[in-house]
Design a protein around this nucleic acid. Structure first.
Length: 150
DNA sequence: CCTCCCTAGCGCCCCCTGCTGGC
DNA sequence: GCCAGCAGGGGGCGCTAGGGAGG
């Protein structure tokens, strides 16, 4: 079997709900043993990927790479085409670009306020506290955004 | 077929700063 | 003028999923 067929076979598995590797601590199931191992490390506090420049340690190698970019190498691969802003993470660049476009996808269900990111909406919901179930309102707003994306 | 590793993505929380309204 | 409350922008980490590469 060619490598692309192997990748295709594995990809098709991602469309199934087959998750044979179950966490004995919380019951959550995963597709691969690697994912389960990482998940178990979050329970046990095991952090095998240690930073050589400080005392931080992480569950995955990817987290360590990101940490090193933030704290030590200051490498920022994601650059804004409209200004000098650059970011370690693409999600941060996307959030930044909304400040150029003015896009506010996260609408408050209780007032006219709309936010450019989820946490700002959640923080805003505190100003409605006492008037409504803020978590429900937040959920409603974020679900609207997800539906919009679909 | 399995595992490791890297990348992508979503989420959460925090900090700093500027604005505004009440005192 | 001072202060508190709020929003905007951004930094940093937690965690999971997908896919390339090699054993």
């Amino acid at each position: 079997m060619s490598s692309c067929c192997l990748i295709y076979t594995r990809h098709m598995k991602s469309h199934t709900d087959e998750r044979p590797h179950k966490c004995h601590l919380c019951g959550r199931a995963f597709r691969t043993v690697t994912l389960l191992r990482n998940h178990l490390n979050t329970h046990t506090g095991t952090r095998p990927h240690k930073c050589t420049d400080c005392d931080m340690a992480f569950v995955t190698s990817g987290e360590l790479v990101r940490h090193r970019r933030y704290k030590h190498t200051h490498e920022k691969p994601f650059k804004c085409s409209m200004c000098d802003y650059a970011s370690v993470e693409v999600s941060k660049l996307k959030r930044h670009i909304r400040s150029h476009t003015g896009e506010r996808p996260f609408q408050c269900s209780l007032c006219s306020y709309a936010s450019r990111d989820t946490y700002k909406l959640k923080r805003h919901m505190r100003t409605h506290s006492g008037k409504f179930d803020t978590f429900t309102a937040f959920l409603h707003a974020t679900q609207n955004y997800n539906v919009h994306l679909l």
